Computed example of a mutant assay.
Amino acid sequence: MNLALLLLRLLLAGLLFGHATQKLFGWFGGAGRAGTGTVFEQWGFVPGARLATLAGLLELAGAASIATGLLTPGGCALVIGTMTVAAVATAPQGFWAQRGGCEVPFCYGALAVVLAFSGPGAWSLDHALGLPELSGYVWGAAALLTGLAAATVPLSARARALRARDSTTTR
């Protein structure tokens, strides 16, 4: 079980690292801060470049927490929050990624939920440092609810920005 959790953590963290560095640095075929910022603004997240930078940094922090197994529920909450925002923004295109849908953020967020409930396993910094067991129903639910609650802030701001944009384009 510990090997499986380590592999799951490293897989998800590696994917999140790539996802974040596409936004931040344009690595792995990404658009970098400016290009991703333009996309963010099209989705209603203003100012786009700053919010793309924030999203990338939060994803990197979540990836580091998950990879190392250090304070795993907190790292999972970061991923759940950022991926919820991304999933909502891309949901109008449908589910599948080939059409620009929310498949990728949904899958990353869902894996973070699983890890929040399971915990990082014995092969983690949490375990090595003797931290209390940060897994189970309470920690999983706390990570899920914290991530979802955090997502309401940018999603509410986005809704206001989209309403303002729509009101100026209909005049």
Rank of each mutant, 00 (worst) to 15 (best):
S135P: 02
A128D: 07
P132C: 06
W139V: 03
E133Q: 08
L144Y: 01
L148N: 03
A157Q: 13
A157I: 02
A151Y: 05
T152L: 14
A149I: 00
L125Q: 03
S135L: 04
E133K: 13
A150G: 15
L148T: 02
H127P: 06
R158Y: 10
G119I: 07
L125Y: 01
P154S: 11
E133F: 05
A122F: 02
V138F: 10
S124L: 02
A150R: 04
V138E: 12
T152K: 07
A149L: 10
G136F: 08
A143G: 04
G136C: 03
L131W: 11
Y137T: 14
A122T: 09
L134D: 03
V138D: 14
R158Q: 14
R158W: 12
W139L: 11
L155T: 07
S124F: 02
G147H: 00
L131E: 01
V138K: 03
L131A: 13
G147T: 04
A157F: 09
G130C: 10
P120D: 09
G130K: 06
L131I: 00
A157N: 07
G130R: 10
A142E: 07
S156T: 14
L145A: 13
A141M: 11
E133G: 09
L125H: 03
T152P: 02
L144R: 06
A141E: 08
A159Y: 14
R158E: 09
S156G: 15
V138L: 15
G130I: 11
D126H: 05
A157S: 04
P154V: 11
A143I: 02
G121R: 01
G140I: 07
L155Q: 05
L129P: 01
P132K: 02
G130E: 10
L129G: 04
S135C: 11
A149Q: 02
V153L: 15
A151E: 04
A151V: 12
